[in-house]
Design a protein around this nucleic acid. Sequence first.
RNA 1: CGGAGCGUAGCUCAGCUUGGUAGAGCACCAGCUUUGGGAGCUGGCUGUCGCAGGUUCAAAUCCUGUCGCUCCGACCA
Length: 580
Amino acid sequence: MRWTQTLIPTLREAPAEAEIVSHQLLLRAGLVRKLAGGVYSFLPLGLRALRKVECIVREEMDRAGAIEVLLPALQPPEIWQQSGRYEAARQVLYKVYDSARREWVLSPTAEEVITLLVAAEIQSYRQLPRNFYQISVKFRDEIRPRFGLMRAREFIMKDAYSFDVSDEAAQQSYQRMYDAYARIFARCGLRTFAVEADTGVIGGSLSHEFMVPAETGENEVAYCEACGYAANLEKAVSAVAGGCSESPVVESPALERFPTPGVQTIADLAAEPYSVPPERQIKTLVYMVESRPWIVLLRGDDALNEAKLAARLGTTTFRPATAEEIEQWLRARPGSLGAVRSALRDTTVPVWADERLRGATDMTTGANEDGFHFRHVDVTRDLRVDQWGDLRLVRAGEPCIRCGESLRLRRAIEVGHVFKLGTKYSEKLGASFIDESGVRRPCVMGCYGIGVTRTLQAVIEQSHDADGIIWPVSVAPYEVCVTLLQSSPTGQVRETAERLYRELVEAGIEVILDDRDERPGVKFKDADLIGFPFRVTVGEKSLARGQIEIKRRAGGTPEAVSVDEAGARVAAYVREARRG
RNA sequence: CGGAGCGUAGCUCAGCUUGGUAGAGCACCAGCUUUGGGAGCUGGCUGUCGCAGGUUCAAAUCCUGUCGCUCCGACCA
């Protein structure tokens, strides 16, 4: 490709709309342009890089035995009602209406479509296992699109769905995808790590996310360097979660109500004159769960993990109660709330408590009357608790659940997610088969997503410097840029560059010839900004010595080689780099 | 949806407080010079000041509404 014949609108400055470096570089390098918030056009260079990622995904999915299909983006809402997800997914579903005012939804994912297809077309265990995948545009009405391609309304996703005859077989399918994912991201030049993940609205029993460590990531991950335990913070547990070891195992003195005028927060009660340390307080939260109040108890210094609460509740439609609602149900305002039996007027409100409070003694909590608290609270003796569970957010430095070493926290970008789904969808949508003994059984499913456009941006986020992108050869829009340093349309420099360009093209190298009438500085800056893995400079100065310069974007000193061997040398370097 | 901020040339931004002929740099076009790290000089082009309404002799500037964008929180590949 010749630079003058394509469209590469590089930008000297970053547009104000781009906050994180990968988003800025996507725009500055002329890879994408925004049409609207979370909606992007791919320009020639961006599309080439995107196709490279897609190609890697396709090769590895095929290698893992998955088969490619293409499912409709336009879906009837009825199938979402059939799976029972219409309500849960409604916030992310784009709805469109045809001329007959009939409603359609734009596909954010395809569990329903593929499961119905399998229900119709697969009847026998002989046709299993199968794993179907597609690479297609997905639509999600994101609450807040941001960071360019990272969280877009419209994005490209690879989604795969496996169907197996048994749980054991499904486990193998899951593992095959897990392994394929590790290969895919490695081939994209990404350093990723897998973490245990929450299953969210999709549901299922086992799940891992593939994470790219990055400060700008939207996920927080807890991990242990000693044993390799790693989990999304939504899911993470630590060794402190199981008890309240700090509490002395003594019998609490009798419950005592005492005045606490003006106390609103844990910190207020921890201050003079009360001086109750947060770990000796009980935090009482009130949530409205599908318009019903729900009390959640935690130790004063712990924070609620809403994902864990959602998992236990089996719904995501809950929110913190307003001060008015709290007053209505508990007759006190936030600041003096508690679940001491004698102070709970309404016994129909469920009380859930974090495991860490189990057996705790001599605690302090609100009395459900403004300006009063109880001290010497014995959780077992005095509190009403309907259900115990792990509800707290893990903090850095807590002991690892597996090995006891100190847990660390870091931010990361989620680029892939694998789920073991079980039979949730196959039962609802009728994907079943007849087994060897003639019994009809539901398929055991798994589903597996890769954010293809997000992966592309994650590569940039992870691989750049002050000058621009540093593409791994595997996803670079072009492997080599031949930089021609002469403006005149004829002459030895030009002829040499043209000859080298043709030689590389014929050698099967993906090469772009910078034939623009621009100053050298401009060409160098653009080549660095876009990040071609190899830059080959043909200019008067080195050519006078019969040489051409080869420079790697990733670093190292430029190498001068003779004109005659330049082509073969560059091609050899590229082939070596392709092998990784 | 809640909180914060911003909408002025293709891009980055000034001008708004205190109303009075819409600006700079980069980019773009022409010419001359320059040619190994975002050149110099000369000349030129570029705007419904996000949109609508209001106040005023007069609005980019003040007021109201609205739309869009960005950031923080809840959702996710």
